[in-house]
């Protein structure tokens, strides 16, 4: 065992699953840009979309929950991602998790539902650039053409061999949010960098 311990003051900070990977992302051809958005608050929300709890959480979130399959809604600092008929992932700024969790639980009250803080369960990546769709197409079977997957589209699928949530953030398929399990994040990062090897400098 090495005696050189890193000082606690340095380590008593959160460490994101892709800490240390940004340099490799930056080395990708400039037709894509990849950045980890670490420590985003993430809450898994389960309510009956037609029950009173849905209305109550909508007040907290400032927007009705999206009920269109594979869609998402922006509401101020929140992104509400449809994951299933009664399941959503709420993305919120770093640190907003505990307070929002409490507010949502209070809103649901005694109605059926669940709010679970899963902020550290996954990390998020922003993928942008004109070759974004081509890059994802190397491992993702979903049609991310803007006609098929317009802005706001949110799908749970596989990219290569990892489960992932993909959110389309513009109308030209050149800005995506990728939400991936923490334990798979390094595999996914390695896959992304490998998939980017052949991208050229122009779209």
């Amino acid at each position: 065992m090495t005696a050189e311990h890193v000082s606690p003051s340095k380590l008593l900070r959160p460490l994101s699953p892709l800490d240390g990977w940004q340099a490799a992302f930056d080395a990708l051809p400039n037709v894509v840009a990849v950045t980890e958005i670490a420590f985003m608050a993430q809450l898994n929300l389960r309510v009956d979309p037609s029950g009173p709890a849905a209305g109550a959480v909508a007040k907290v979130l400032g927007s009705a929950l999206p009920t269109q399959p594979c869609s998402s809604t922006r509401s101020g600092e929140y992104q509400l991602l449809w994951l299933g008929p009664d399941e959503w992932l709420i993305l919120a700024p770093e640190g907003a998790g505990p307070e929002l969790e409490t507010a949502l639980r209070e809103a649901i009250g005694g109605e059926p539902g669940a709010v679970t803080d899963v902020s550290a369960q996954r990390t998020t990546l922003a993928l942008s650039g004109c070759a974004s769709r081509e890059l994802l197409a190397k491992g993702c079977s979903i049609d991310l053409h803007p006609k098929v997957s317009p802005m706001g589209t949110c799908v749970q699928t596989l990219v290569a061999q990892t489960g992932i949530i993909i959110v389309a953030r513009d109308e030209t398929a050149s800005d995506f949010l990728l939400v991936v399990r923490a334990s798979f994040a390094q595999y996914f990062a390695a896959w992304l960098i490998d998939a980017g090897v052949e991208l050229t400098g122009a779209c």
Partner: peptide, 13 residues
């Protein structure tokens, strides 16, 4: 929370 996993591990260590 897993972000703090390595920090707490080191602290315990």
């Amino acid at each position: 929370p897993s972000w703090y996993g390595i920090a707490v591990w080191q602290a315990v260590f």
